[in-house]
């Protein structure tokens, strides 16, 4: 049973990570941790660097300063198993391969018999997540929502015992209300049971409330979790809201201070009170 496994304790750690987009520094200094079994949401206005930070953690974007420390892995290679649900999910499947093969391709680093075992995992997870998805279809035969479900399924099924770090960029944006609700619940269950550290970019409040244990609400760019530090006096603040009061399974907790209008608005909407 996956839930009974010993959970590795190390978190995903970001220490003063700085990153730029289109030659402009958007992330001045991001320092936070994502614990095993936790989902941390990144929310904020367009262009504030959420996806840039996610790509930096994935190793796809240069980390200009600071460091991203992945948890130690129990795999023979010792490299943490990182899975990604990309923002461009529709382009992330191979036109010449079925969804099943596309999912299995991402699993090809996981030892012998990777194709069969990944295909079997995808099939069983598809049922577990109650996704209405025919894995034999080619991408051009699928709607955007189906492809997004497949991208989520691929991230969860790519490794035999699940990913250790899950990075997802707006993973529910194309799903209808019912499917999105099921997918959010399934993701929470999966992350909890398998001790995954999940960092998720989300835009809508419902998704944030239903999915995340904690949300970093970014108030503009450039931003810093450390406040006006690193010599950048204009850095925006970040609201660190622990969700709970509205969540059926969460604990009521506090939030870090913020002063901005966006942060305040999000705090009100999310029902997270000010830091004591």
């Amino acid at each position: 049973m996956a839930g009974e496994r010993e959970q590795p304790a190390e978190p995903l750690t970001l220490r003063r990570v700085a990153a730029s987009h289109a030659a402009a520094r958007v992330v001045v200094s991001a320092s936070f941790e994502v614990a095993a079994g936790e989902i941390v949401g990144l929310a904020g206005p367009n262009g504030c660097g959420k996806s840039t930070l996610l790509r930096t953690v994935a190793g796809l974007h240069p980390c200009e300063r600071g460091e991203v420390v992945l948890p130690r892995s129990r795999t023979p290679a010792g490299v943490a198993r990182v899975a990604l649900v990309p923002q461009g999910y529709a382009q992330s499947f191979w036109p010449w391969a079925s969804l099943r093969s596309g999912i299995a391709l991402a699993a090809s680093g996981s030892g012998r018999g990777w194709y069969r075992s990944a295909a079997a995992r995808a099939q069983s997870l598809r049922a577990e997540l109650a996704l209405d998805l025919d894995l034999g279809l080619r991408p051009y035969q699928c709607s955007g929502g189906m492809l997004q479900q497949a991208a989520l399924l691929r991230a969860l099924a790519a490794f035999a015992s699940g990913p250790e770090v899950l990075l997802a960029d707006e993973p529910f944006s194309a799903l209808d209300v019912d499917v999105a609700r099921r997918a959010r619940a399934a993701l929470r269950r999966f992350v909890r049971e398998r001790g995954v550290r999940a960092l998720v970019v989300l835009h809508d409040v419902e998704s944030l409330v239903e999915t995340c244990d904690r949300v970093l609400v970014i108030d503009g760019k450039p931003w810093s979790t450390d406040g006006a530090s690193e010599g950048v006096s204009t850095a925006r603040m970040v609201l660190n809201a622990r969700l709970g009061s509205r969540r059926p399974d969460g604990d009521a907790d506090a939030a870090a201070p913020t002063t901005s209008s966006f942060g305040d608005a999000m705090a009100r909407v999310l029902g997270a009170g000010p830091h004591p």
């Binding site: 994935a58 190793g59 796809l60 490299v79 198993r81 990182v82 899975a83 990604l84 990309p86 461009g88 382009q91 992330s92 499947f93 191979w94 391709l105 991402a106 699993a107 090809s108 680093g109 790519a158 990075l167």
Partner: peptide
């Protein structure tokens, strides 16, 4: 997107 995805998932060079 596809090449980046394979890099993140740690897919072998041959694949």
């Amino acid at each position: 997107e596809r090449s980046e995805l394979l890099a993140v998932f740690g897919v072998p060079r041959s694949v």
